[in-house]
Amino acid sequence: MNSERVAVVSGGSRGIGRAVAQTLGGQGYAVVVGYTSAADAAAEVVDAVTASGGRAVAVRADVADEQAVAAMFDAAEREFGGVDVVVNSAGRMALSPVADLDLADLDAQYRTNVRGAFVMAREAARRVRPGGAIVTFSTSVVGLRFPGYAAYAAGKAAVETMTQILARELRGRDVTANAVAPGPTATDLFLDGKDQDTIDRLAKQPPLERLGTPEDIAEVVAFLASPAGHWVNGQTLRANGGII
Rank of each mutant, 00 (worst) to 15 (best):
A222S: 14
T176Q: 12
G91A: 00
T36P: 00
Y35E: 10
L211P: 08
Q196L: 14
L103G: 05
T23S: 01
S37A: 15
G91F: 01
M72I: 14
V141T: 08
M93Q: 00
K156I: 00
L189Y: 08
A42D: 13
F118H: 15
P207N: 02
N88S: 11
N2P: 15
M1F: 15
G81C: 12
L208G: 11
A151L: 08
S10T: 06
E169K: 12
A30H: 03
G212N: 13
A90T: 06
V220I: 08
D107A: 15
R55A: 12
V86T: 13
A21V: 04
G183H: 13
G131V: 02
G172C: 03
N2M: 13
V46C: 05
Q205V: 15
T136L: 15
I16G: 14
L208P: 08
F73H: 07
S37T: 11
A179Q: 06
V221L: 02
D192Y: 15
F137V: 02
F137L: 09
E169W: 03
L166T: 08
G241F: 05
S89R: 04
R18Q: 13
T187W: 12
V232Q: 09
R78P: 08
L166K: 14
Y29V: 01
G234S: 14
A218M: 12
S10A: 01
L166Y: 06
T185R: 11
L211E: 06
T187D: 14
I165S: 10
G132H: 02
T236E: 04
K194G: 09
L166D: 06
I199W: 05
E66F: 04
L101Y: 10
M120G: 10
A117P: 08
A181E: 09
M162A: 11
G15W: 14
G116R: 12
G17Y: 01
S13R: 11
G143P: 03
M1I: 12
A68S: 11
T213E: 10
D102P: 10
E44T: 02
A94N: 02
V31Q: 06
G132M: 09
M1E: 12
R92Q: 00
Y152D: 05
R171W: 15
E66C: 14
M72S: 11
K156H: 01
